[in-house]
Amino acid sequence: MATCKDCKGFFAREDDQDRGDCVMRVTDPRQAYYKAVPVEADKDASKCSSFRKR
């Protein structure tokens, strides 16, 4: 099972390797930005459309 920590967009927290940020590049019709969502390292990513294997 692919988990978040296997993804290129996952960045573990220094103080807690079990948690981290899922960082994504988003371009909307007006602006471009980087987005961060907190995730658990072991979260199931098999259904995640933005998953990119490390």
Partner: peptide
């Protein structure tokens, strides 16, 4: 505050938004 998605817009220097995306 711990879990809402946050974002940094290109060229921006001041952070913080109420909501999980610019739109």
């Amino acid at each position: 505050l711990d879990n809402i998605p946050i974002f940094i817009t290109d060229n921006s220097q001041i952070m913080g938004y109420i909501g999980s995306a610019p739109h």
